[in-house]
Amino acid sequence: MRRVSRFAATVAIAATLALTASACGESSTESNDNEGDKGPGIAFDVGGRDDHSFNESAATGADRAGEELGVTPEFQTARSGETNADRVQRLTALANEGYNPVIGVGYLYGDSIQQVAADFPDTTFGVVDAAPEGDNVYGMVFAEHEVSYLAGVAAALKSETGRVGFIGGVDNPLIQKFQAGFVQGVTETDPDIDVEVDYLYADDDRGFADPAKASEKANAMLGRDVDVIYTAAGSSGSGSVEQVAAVEGAWAIGVDSDQYQQPGLAEYQDSILTSGVKRVDVAVEDLITAVHNGEAPSGVHEYTLAEDGVELSTSGGFIDDIQGDIDAATQRIIDGETTVSDTP
């Protein structure tokens, strides 16, 4: 029994020490006296800066703003499988170092931004794809379903086999917006076309950083005579594009950035029909410029088709022949004639 009590005593002492030690010493916030003028700090979602997709778009916007205003943006990258604590830490560290605005790229930053923003009232926080609350928080959300509708129209008009496909990275509400718009666009253009829908992961943010899995899914779809594939899966998308490029006459539709213009995808660009572009770059650039000029915005703004917040890219000229139909569909959405559903 004596051993037991000695062990218990050791544990108790260790615990007490640990708990009291935790409260002492200088905190990292105290030892920092930055003025909040270091320029923008960007925290990426998984996939990182070079995901050929929306992280990259945010980075482009920040770089552009940085060049114009003469500031250097700081970029930080998330790992797969992070917890809220990791995100809170990253944002706190950025704000603490004096970066302003601090921008979280991706809906996962919604909660953590709200939490951190309360601790740094003088810093402006921006978040892409989420709508948190707070006086110094600016939420940038996009009408992905509207641009996906246009992608659906293009897919329906370009498909030879009468089968098109949608691949989503993770089966969550954000990606379902892409799916809903795309399916509606296809069926309203040509009700006879089959749309296959598949997701890489049901519930795991690895879906945005797993090109191998996207390549597998795309390969299976191509095998079933699908000839246009729309992939909304962050950096996983490159796997799908690569598969499609290997098949004569098949088209890939990109997402977030204009993937035809991506240097990393240059060798497949002849197979990239178009991209459903989210102007994350414009949103980020505007936010940085506004903060620099002392006019920090707050609230939530939805970037829609009507204000060019989302758009269908035309580079490569592959959809020039159907541009009339695309413009007509765009006009119908802007006029409110067509209401695009944001849930499947």
Binding site: A18, S22, C24, G25, A85
Partner: peptide, 13 residues
């Protein structure tokens, strides 16, 4: 790592 807020974060994590 030895800053007080780091200690708390590390323990919680």
């Amino acid at each position: 790592g030895i800053k007080s807020d780091s200690q708390v974060w590390i323990l919680n994590k």
